[in-house]
Every structure is written in structure tokens, then in C-alpha cells.
Amino acid sequence: MNEAEFDEFYTSSFARVTGQVHALIGDRDEAQECVQEAFVRAWAHRGKLSRAEHPEAWVRTTAYRLAVSRWRRTRLARRPADRALSPALRTEATDETRVAIMAALARLPESQRRALVLHHLCDLSVEAVAREVGAPEGTVKARLSRGRAALAAILTPLDATDPGARHA
């Protein structure tokens, strides 16, 4: 991969991969930092990147592993709201939906969240998801099924199911 090819790859995929990693880990700032680091490593290891079948998946997986590794090493708790450049401060309707989706994803088990994001957001096939996460396809399908059910349960408005229900 030469400089021009890398620059084009980087500029065309940075925002998309950062959004995907944000959905995976729930922290936008951390996602941007890890994706940035992943692209630096991608250029440093451009020989591997050139041989990779799916360079964007290589970057996304590297960024995700960096984020998980850093989180487990430093035990980052949820950052206080006043530290984040929170998109929730913006009150457009689409941002409210995005905030709700992100919050719901964050409540799912990591493996279900990762399967849902890779399949539905990154548009990977079940086979490709299995390859990226290193799990059998049957396991991925089970995680997708359980994840969809869990996401629906979290996001379905209460008055759509029982107008008289109260929050627990």
C-alpha cells in the first residue's frame, strides 16, 4: 500500500470505523483515540495491511482490541459527563435516537453487542463476523438472536406494551 492509497483509505474510513468502534465500546473519545492509534499501526505495518483481505476490518479489530486492552488495564469507569463532549447536549431528534441506541448497546453483554454492531451496523455477514471475533458461526447466530431480543426489550417504549406499566 503506497502513500496515496493509504491516505485515501484513511480519509474515507476513519469516521466510519470510529463510529463503529464507538458503538462497540460506548465511549466516543476512547474510540477516536484507539482508531487513530490503529491507523498509525496500520501504516507502520503496511505490509500486513496490504496482504489483509479486509483492511478496514484489520483496523477496526486493532482499535477494538486496543480499547479493550486499555480498559482492562486501567479499569476505566464511565467518564463523568462533564468530561465528555457529549452529543446528548445537542437536542436534535436524530441525536436523541443515537444516544438511546448507544446507551442500550452499552447495557448488552460485550459479545452480543459486538455481534450486533458488526452484523447490523458494519454490515458484515455472519461468516465474516465469526471470522472477526474468532467464534463459530453458530455461536454468533445465538448471540445475534439474544442480542436482538435484549435490545428490543431495552428500547421498546413501555406504553407500546402496557400503558399502565410503571418503571421498575
Binding site: I101, L121, A152, I154
Partner: peptide, 10 residues
Amino acid sequence: PIRELENLDL
């Protein structure tokens, strides 16, 4: 929710 996820504006 799945459609919303698939159409999520990154």
C-alpha cells in the same frame, strides 16, 4: 431497534 441500529448515523 434493529432498523434504527442499521440506519444509525455514525
